[in-house]
């Protein structure tokens, strides 16, 4: 990638229990120019019939991205900073393999454009040393972008975790989830 001002000390921390469902991140996400100004963040009720809990989901930027592996068109790539980029528009054939295979349910298929789109950590901003749009506007810091030192001071009883267990499969990610202190992974199933 051409711009090398990407600050590798800065990391993304997500804590969906802090999400208040305000949708500020959704509006801010649409300001990201690498998304073509379409909002890519997911924010929705978890189970509206029984709870008002909302959840927020950005791309977790997996170390070994399933989306890129199952892509038949070699359209998804991971760069040297570990950012998994949205589909290369000239290659993507709109098959939806990535949409269905992503363990975090992140990619979106735009039907009219026959194109997969997803969060690429506001690469226009992060590659210039800035914070992603969603993290700059989140009022409850469910989405936080900063250093490990900063987050450990702010959340002394939590620990960032980047290992997820989906049945038999372990997935490691660039983005961290804030878990109770002492946790080493999050077992989803």
């Amino acid at each position: 990638m051409p711009n090398t001002k990407y600050n590798q000390q800065m990391e993304f921390f997500i804590d969906m229990q802090r999400c208040i469902g305000c949708h500020a991140c959704e509006m801010a996400c649409a300001e990201c120019e690498t998304n073509g100004q379409e909002s890519m963040i997911h924010i929705h009720y978890v189970d509206r019939a029984v709870s008002v809990q909302t959840t927020v989901q950005v791309c977790m930027h997996c170390e070994d991205p399933v989306c890129a592996n199952v892509c038949p068109a070699d359209a998804i790539t991971k760069d040297d900073f570990g950012v998994v980029h949205t589909a290369n528009t000239s290659r993507c054939i709109g098959c939806s393999n990535c949409v269905l295979a992503c363990p975090f349910g992140v990619p979106i298929k735009s039907e009219p454009q026959e194109l997969m789109m997803k969060c690429n950590m506001c690469y226009d901003r992060t590659s210039a040393g800035k914070k992603p749009m969603c993290a700059t506007v989140c009022p409850s810091q469910a989405l936080y972008y900063g250093t490990r030192e900063e987050i450990s001071k702010m959340r002394p009883d939590s620990v960032p975790v980047n290992t997820f267990q989906f049945g038999e499969q372990e997935v490691k990610t660039k983005v961290n989830i804030m878990m109770p202190k002492g946790s080493t992974h999050l077992k989803v199933h």
Partner: peptide, 9 residues
């Protein structure tokens, strides 16, 4: 999948 993750969290 997103809801499963949120529930587990």
């Amino acid at each position: 999948k997103r809801s499963a993750l949120a529930k587990a969290h």
